[in-house]
Simulated assay, not measured.
Amino acid sequence: MSDTNKKAKKRLASLDALRGFDMFWILGGEKIFAALFVLTGWAGWKVAEAQTLHSQWHGFTFYDLIFPLFIFLSGVAMGLAPKRIDHLPFVERKPIYIKAFKRLLLLCSFGVLYNHGWGTGVPLNPEEIRFASVLGRIAIAWFVAAMLVWHTSFRTQMFTLVGILIGYWVWLCFIPVPGGVAGDLSSGGAGTWNAWFDTNLLPGITYQNKPMDPEGILSSVPAIANALFGVIAGRYIKQAQERGEWKTAGILFAAGLVALACGWLWDMVFPVNKDLWTSSFVMVTVGWSFILLAVFYAVVDLLNQQRAAYLFVIIGANSIVIYLASSLVNWEFVSKSVFGGVIAAVPAPWQPLFAVFALLAVQLLVLHWLYKRKILISV
């Protein structure tokens, strides 16, 4: 195997590991801190648990990072293998376009399915369906970023990125909403452009029937910037051999610190807010994304610790499948069916922690089985 192929393989493992780390907190990892608090009574675990809950409105917790990090990583994958196809004859580009459109439609459809998991199923009445979704936003951000990578120069992509962030800030803060005012970002978002778009243009229902959907129309635009920042990171790693791999990891880490500083400075005039997906929120999440990518790149790729990251790798390799299953499969019922006797046998303070480990174990066993048989389901 050539050195080039080896590097590509390592980078894929690094991306899978970070993607798996991201997904780990959705699968049940977020319950560990609450269980540890029950076991030890240490107040520090309550502080950690607070980071596994979404911000109520303005502000940021690490749980807010899960969604944008996934989008960022989709951009990293594109940046590792950037390709311009606009010079090709249309007959050669057509299969690529068809595949991209299929991925867009499949992810949006899976998002609708996820939204209505654990209920009575997707309603037959379109007006009762929630069309906006996490997977839908991932699909849109990836698709637009892919079109830019395939058809424009890197310079154009950077101008687009900056234009999105500044344009979104200007739109939300300085342009009056029809029948309202400019810059009303008060709790709930009823007076925002986001609510206006979702009320007038978004079909079906919004999340919890709120005035605006956290995965609604307008807030999907700045999410494209998360993917484009990922493209920058991927392109930089691709050129690591030229400047030194450890230097690359260090620069990625430093870039994350700079992005964090920019995000929190911007927060003074444009608050960090996940539901609105503000430009300052983009910068804060991109900052942490760069930092985590640098750490995982150093540990998994440069220190060759793929085995240590194995549990995260198997999650990341089938991330879409296990995410969808988290809405459609009653994993708690399965874990209690398998490990219920063990959980009941341990002392009461230990039971919540054992229950969390059991919940994670049944999912990881399925993912391990898929990975060992090279069943890697992607969209």
Score class of each variant (00 low, 15 high):
Cys108Gln: 07
Tyr97Val: 10
Gln157His: 01
Thr156Glu: 04
Met158Glu: 07
Phe101Asp: 02
Ile138Asn: 05
Ala100Gln: 05
Arg84Ser: 07
Ser133Arg: 03
Leu148Arg: 08
Phe90Met: 10
Pro82Asn: 11
Arg93Lys: 08
Trp142Thr: 08
Met147His: 03
Met147Glu: 13
Gln157Tyr: 02
Met147Ala: 11
Leu135Arg: 04
Ala141Trp: 01
Glu127Arg: 06
Arg137Asn: 13
Gly117Trp: 13
Leu107Trp: 09
Leu135Met: 06
Leu105Met: 15
Asn115Arg: 02
Asp86Asn: 15
Phe143Ala: 14
Gly136Pro: 04
Leu105Asn: 01
Ile138Gly: 00
Arg84Gln: 12
His87Ala: 10
Ala145Arg: 09
Thr120Gly: 13
Gly119Gln: 11
Leu135Ile: 03
Asp86Phe: 14
Pro123Lys: 04
Ser133Tyr: 03
Ser153Asn: 04
Leu148His: 03
Thr156Trp: 07
Trp150Arg: 15
Val122Cys: 13
His116Trp: 11
His87Trp: 08
Val134Gly: 08
Leu113Glu: 03
Phe101Arg: 07
Ile98Gly: 04
Arg103Phe: 00
Ala145Pro: 01
Phe154Cys: 05
Pro82Arg: 12
Val91Trp: 05
Trp142Pro: 01
Tyr114His: 11
Leu105Glu: 02
Arg130Val: 04
Val144Gln: 03
Asn115His: 09
His87Ile: 00
Val144Ile: 14
Ile96Gly: 00
Phe101Gly: 06
Gly121Phe: 09
Leu135Pro: 03
Val134Tyr: 09
Val112Cys: 00
Glu128Ile: 00
Gly111Asn: 08
Asn115Tyr: 12
Leu106His: 02
Val149Gly: 03
Met147Ile: 14
Glu127Met: 13
Glu128Trp: 02
Ala145Val: 11
Lys99Tyr: 06
Arg130Ile: 03
Thr120Met: 13
Lys94Tyr: 08
Phe154Glu: 13
Ile96Lys: 12
Phe110Cys: 13
Pro95Lys: 06
Leu113Lys: 04
Trp118Arg: 12
Trp142Leu: 11
Phe110Met: 15
Leu88Phe: 11
Ile129Met: 12
Gly111Val: 08
Asp86Lys: 11
His151Phe: 15
Gln157Glu: 10
Ser109Cys: 12
Trp150Phe: 14
Phe110Ile: 11
Ile85Phe: 09
Phe90Pro: 02
Ile138Val: 15
Val91Ala: 15
Glu92Leu: 11
Gly119Lys: 09
Ser153Met: 02
Leu124Cys: 01
Leu135Phe: 15
Val112Thr: 12
Thr120Asp: 13
Tyr97Asn: 07
His116Ala: 06
Pro95Met: 07
Lys83Val: 12
Ala132Ile: 05
Cys108Lys: 06
Pro89Ile: 07
Ala146Pro: 00
Leu113Asp: 04
Asn125Asp: 15
Gly121Thr: 05
Ser109Ile: 05
Pro126Leu: 01
Met147Leu: 15
Tyr114Met: 14
Pro126Lys: 02
Lys83Arg: 15
Ser133Leu: 01
Phe159Glu: 06
Trp118His: 14
Val122His: 10
Ala141Tyr: 04
Arg137Ile: 04
Pro95Asn: 13
Val149Asp: 07
Gly136Glu: 01
His116Leu: 03
Asn125Phe: 09
Glu127Pro: 00
Pro82Glu: 10
